[in-house]
Measured scan of single mutants.
Amino acid sequence: IRVFLPNKQRTVVNVRNGMSLHDCLMKALKVRGLQPECCAVFRLLHEHKGKKARLDWNTDAASLIGEELQV
């Protein structure tokens, strides 16, 4: 999953079965001084340019493999 972060940063996270978005993104956020409780995560909708859909931090990350997200 490719993730666009604040301050023009980005990362790619690996996903294993059973992991939530929170689990996958925790380290990437922590390294940058961010906390999931203070952030929202969105899936970028490529079929609708510029649109995005808000996701819950408990979403199964395996269902988002190959997607691009924005925090």
Rank of each mutant, 00 (worst) to 15 (best):
L25E: 02
Q35H: 09
L45D: 11
L45G: 15
I1M: 08
H22V: 10
F4K: 09
G33V: 04
V3Y: 05
L34K: 01
L69Q: 03
L21I: 09
R16A: 13
I65G: 04
S20T: 15
L21S: 03
I65M: 09
L45M: 14
N17L: 07
L55I: 13
G50I: 07
S63A: 11
D23S: 09
N14F: 08
K51H: 13
L21Y: 04
R2A: 07
K51P: 11
S63I: 07
T11S: 07
H48I: 08
P36Y: 10
N17G: 12
K30L: 13
P6R: 03
G50M: 07
L45R: 13
N58C: 07
E68V: 12
S20F: 05
D56T: 07
G18L: 00
T59C: 13
L64A: 01
E37P: 08
N14P: 13
Q35Y: 09
L25C: 04
R43C: 10
M26V: 14
L64S: 04
Q70M: 10
H22E: 12
V31H: 08
F42N: 01
N58F: 04
H22T: 04
A40C: 12
A62H: 08
L34C: 03
V12K: 07
D56H: 08
A61Q: 00
K49N: 12
G66Q: 03
N7V: 01
S63V: 05
L44C: 09
V15T: 03
D23E: 14
L44W: 05
L25P: 07
G33N: 11
R2N: 12
H22K: 15
N17W: 09
A40P: 01
R43K: 12
L55S: 06
N58G: 11
K52P: 11
L55M: 07
T11M: 13
Q70G: 00
K52C: 14
R43T: 05
S63T: 11
L34G: 01
L21R: 02
I1F: 09
D60P: 12
N17R: 13
D56N: 10
V13K: 04
V71K: 00
G18H: 06
L29V: 01
F42D: 03
V12P: 04
E68H: 08
V71S: 00
N14A: 14
M19K: 06
A28F: 02
K27A: 11
S63N: 12
A61V: 07
I1Y: 08
H22G: 12
K51T: 12
K49E: 15
A28L: 06
H48N: 12
L69F: 07
G66C: 03
L69V: 08
A61E: 04
H46I: 09
G33C: 03
G18F: 00
K52S: 10
L69D: 05
L55Y: 02
H48T: 11
E67I: 05
E68N: 09
E37A: 06
S20Q: 02
F4T: 14
V15M: 01
G66H: 08
L45Q: 15
K52F: 13
Q70E: 15
E67T: 10
V41N: 06
D60C: 09
L25S: 03
K8P: 00
K8F: 02
S63H: 07
L69K: 05
Q35V: 12
G66E: 06
A61H: 03
D60N: 06
W57I: 06
N14Q: 15
K52A: 14
K51I: 08
P36C: 05
K30H: 10
D56G: 07
L55W: 01
E37V: 03
K51M: 14
V71H: 02
H48Q: 15
L64G: 02
T59M: 14
Q70L: 14
K30Y: 10
V13D: 00
K51V: 11
L21F: 03
L69I: 13
E67P: 01
E68D: 10
I65F: 02
D56Y: 06
R2F: 08
V12E: 15
V13H: 01
L55T: 00
L45P: 14
T11A: 12
R54P: 11
D56M: 07
Q9E: 15
V3R: 03
A40W: 09
D56S: 11
Q35C: 10
L69P: 06
P36I: 05
C39P: 00
D23F: 02
K52V: 13
K30Q: 15
D60S: 10
L5F: 12
H48L: 10
T59R: 03
E37M: 06
Q70S: 11
R10D: 15
V31G: 10
R10V: 15
N58Q: 11
V15A: 08
I65L: 09
L69C: 04
M26G: 14
N17E: 14
K8D: 15
T11I: 15
V41A: 07
M26D: 13
